[in-house]
């Protein structure tokens, strides 16, 4: 699920460590009966997780080695690495998707994160209407991406959309209106703009939560020592925000790798597959071209890329969880 809204909580789950309670817990962790006792609590979750998450993922890797239409009536034929060879050598759209996914991840790590940080820093000050600002910035994040896609599609409408109107009024371009979504060179960036609009507020909220952890005494004493705003930010605020920055980065990577709804809703991957991304290309191959082998090969690539990017973080954060005992 594109659980954009859910993510802010990981910040709280893993940031606050190092409270005095930790040491005590080492001794006080009470266990009665071990694994057997935990089973009634754990079994439903494990069952749902294994059957509907883990098994399909393993199955995706397996199916990437088969040729199959996806219909139960058709046989699955083992073809080894043939799907991958086809993917890497004969599928130009695959490489477009790789490129777009990479560009999307990099841009996401720069633009909505910085914007979110700036919003959070600004709204961390006592200002009139702070809650209103915060809500307006955050609200796009709770909307369904598919609804956001439709809103932006309308704004990009070449005849009646607001961008066309602005460009005509200001006499920018050739007067034929804005055709971002039908231009293969800019379509992906036009979709990305909607993404920025949607996720910047989420990052803002994460940073705002992180900013609560910045010691006010430290900021005060830095000011007394004559530090200016930038010096305070650079030497006090930013180091204290480091755990939040890591979490925002990881969540951004995770979200940008799985971007799907927005692209389906705004361009469908077009024009001429120019705005394809890995997640959508996998779906397209499996469900529209009925090539489950190729589709799952793309899915496997997506899985490997994700693991390479997030496993280091996971090791780091599970270590943190271990330390908590």
């Amino acid at each position: 699920m594109t659980k954009l809204t859910e993510t802010r909580f990981t910040a709280q789950a893993s940031v606050p460590q190092g409270r005095p309670q930790r040491k005590k817990n080492l001794v006080q962790r009470i266990g009665k009966g071990g694994f057997i006792a935990s089973l009634p609590f754990l079994a439903p979750a494990l069952a749902a997780y294994v059957v509907f998450v883990i098994a399909p993922m393993i199955s995706a890797v397996r199916l990437s080695l088969y040729q199959w239409s996806g219909y139960n009536t058709d046989p699955q034929v083992f073809v080894g690495f043939k799907n991958y060879i086809r993917l890497f050598t004969q599928d130009p759209v695959f490489w477009t998707s790789v490129q777009n996914t990479v560009v999307w991840v990099i841009l996401s790590l720069i633009i909505p994160t910085t914007l979110g940080l700036v919003m959070a820093l600004a709204l961390n000050q006592p200002l009139v209407g702070r809650n209103l600002f915060r809500s307006v910035f955050y609200i796009p994040g709770v909307l369904a991406p598919i609804a956001v896609a439709n809103m932006w599609r309308w704004m990009y409408n070449p005849n009646y959309g607001v961008f066309s109107e602005i460009s005509k009024t200001l006499h920018i371009g050739d007067g034929s209106g804005v055709t971002f979504l039908s231009d293969p060179k800019v379509a992906i960036y036009a979709v990305f703009a909607a993404f920025v609009w949607q996720v910047a507020g989420l990052n803002m909220v994460l940073f705002l939560a992180g900013l609560q952890g910045v010691s006010k005494e430290l900021v005060e004493s830095a000011r007394l020592d004559g530090a200016n705003n930038w010096q305070v930010f650079r030497n006090v605020t930013l180091p204290a925000l480091r755990p939040t920055v890591v979490i925002v980065m990881v969540l951004t990577i995770v979200h940008s790798i799985k971007v799907f709804d927005l692209i389906v809703g705004m361009t469908g991957g077009g024009p001429a597959q120019s705005s394809q991304v890995l997640a959508l290309w996998s779906y397209t191959q499996s469900f529209l071209n009925h090539d489950f082998g190729l589709g799952n090969a793309v899915a496997t690539v997506l899985l490997v890329v994700t693991l390479v990017l997030v496993v280091p973080y996971l090791i780091w954060s599970t270590k943190g969880a271990d330390d908590q005992r």
């Binding site: 509907f52 993922m57 199955s59 899915a299 996971l314």
Partner: peptide
């Protein structure tokens, strides 16, 4: 929580 659901969509 990190892996995109699209990986598992087909199966």
């Amino acid at each position: 929580s990190m892996v995109p659901i699209q990986v598992a969509l087909g199966p």
